[in-house]
Design a protein around this nucleic acid. Structure first.
Lengths: 243, 243
DNA sequence: TCAAAAGTGTTTCCCTTACACCCATGA
DNA sequence: TCATGGGTGTAAGGGAAACACTTTTGA
């Protein structure tokens, strides 16, 4: 979980469901690298996943969508639950005490944010070129980090990212979700490098091309003149993607 | 969720995590039918999935395991999270008011069990022949029901069963979990009928046999004399299953 | 000796793999 | 004209689909 803007914080968490948090692993793809959005708490070096809580009358999935939208400025984000993190050993209120103290709050021991939380993990797939990372009020920053060079994260957030990546890989072919990480138009090479990055292995180019095109879900749009010293690749578009 | 024994109920749910419930779809397989465990609340005709809550210092997965163990009398149950049900529209305290009233409780409006719950769905796969269904204190019954002839269930429990079945089907080959529904020794025909029931379609016998044996995870134990007017089938055993 | 269920063999087909070849482009 | 990246052709290999055949048992 991540601590919310100060104006929403009070001692007993009025208006929110207690003991339940949402942690969102927001993936982007740029320069052939998978990126995740991370925020740093104000005046500390604690990094965390974007997160939030569920309003009293809000659907769980809507709460996750709200979190992802607020951090990226996007609507219609592809989102999926992937695991619930509920070990008691996750419970460690010390960092949150420090974060609140440093920022001028002096919570009592019974402050709702210092209680144990069950955290529902979501991953989101967004178009890196369209997202505008925006920190929540209590964060200094909200930025993309390469999966391979993330700072240390609070609690078990590093394992949450790891598990999100596994779920993403398992669903990649199955649910055809990779397209959500690319702009509307993309080349087959870009798509292949995305797949290779997520799966962590090289794929054969002819086989990949035929497999993807064989799905019948892409339409060829136009040639793309990149200025490269080679044949111009076609641009493709996911057929059911909005225009 | 399901209401717990009376001795554990008090107005503010001391000792449990609030707003979070566990619902467990416990599958068994018998007479070529998939079965689920359902309970009826005392003195009512409300049927529900086995469920429970998380103790203050209990791991989420352990809580689910505890629920499944208490209802079946088994240890080492195969369990898996499959979805979190968190729509606000699930929230309907009326049945629980009635259940409590009928059984001599007179909860206030703020009773913790009448609040909104986020429900974490687990499915469990057990050996039908070893399980001994046991109702919790506030239930009259705990029995196996055919998937096709379940009584109406409270809340969205029917959809929860449906979603559990889908998750089970999706993982069947992937994670090789079907064996958990059969006794230690079983015939290839029994395994095939289990697969056919879960997947909802006929499979070709030679292909199924080769595919399963090709996995290299079964050992052939002995012939089984069923008394049937046909060749005695071999018994097989999952290699890594405890003896 | 026949029916029924179990086990195995065989052929076909298709998808994946692997590699080869051609095309377009800028240096 | 050469290197580079993109698109397509083709042959080999492996597994699934479909069907045939054999085996074992009780009626």
């Amino acid at each position: 979980m991540s601590i919310k803007p100060a104006d929403e914080i009070n001692e007993n968490g009025t208006g929110f469901i207690k003991n339940v948090a949402i942690d969102t692993v927001i993936f982007g793809f740029h320069d052939n690298m998978l990126k995740v959005l991370l925020s740093a708490y104000k005046n500390t070096s604690y990094f965390a996943l974007p997160g939030g809580f569920i309003r009293e009358k809000e659907n769980l999935n809507d709460a996750a969508r709200r979190v992802a939208s607020e951090r990226t400025g996007l609507d219609d984000i592809f989102l999926e639950q992937f695991y619930v993190f509920g070990d008691y050993a996750r419970y460690d209120p010390e960092p949150f005490k420090i974060i609140m103290e440093v920022n001028g709050n002096h919570p009592s021991e019974s402050h709702w944010l210092l209680q144990r939380f069950i955290s529902i993990g979501y991953y989101a797939l967004v178009d890196f070129t369209k997202a505008t990372p925006t920190p929540a009020a209590i964060f200094d920053s909200c930025n993309w980090y390469d999966l391979n060079s993330m700072p240390p994260l609070i609690q078990d957030h590093t394992q949450i990212v790891q598990k999100a990546l596994e779920a993403l890989g398992a669903n990649l072919d199955n649910k055809l979700i990779g397209f959500n990480l690319l702009p509307e138009d993309f080349t087959m090479g870009e798509l292949q490098r995305l797949y290779e990055t997520i799966l962590g292995k090289k794929l054969l180019r002819p086989a990949f091309q035929r497999k993807i095109l064989g799905l019948g879900i892409l339409e060829r749009v136009a040639k793309k003149w990149t200025g490269g010293a080679h044949k111009a690749p076609y641009l493709y578009r996911f057929i059911s993607k909005k225009m």
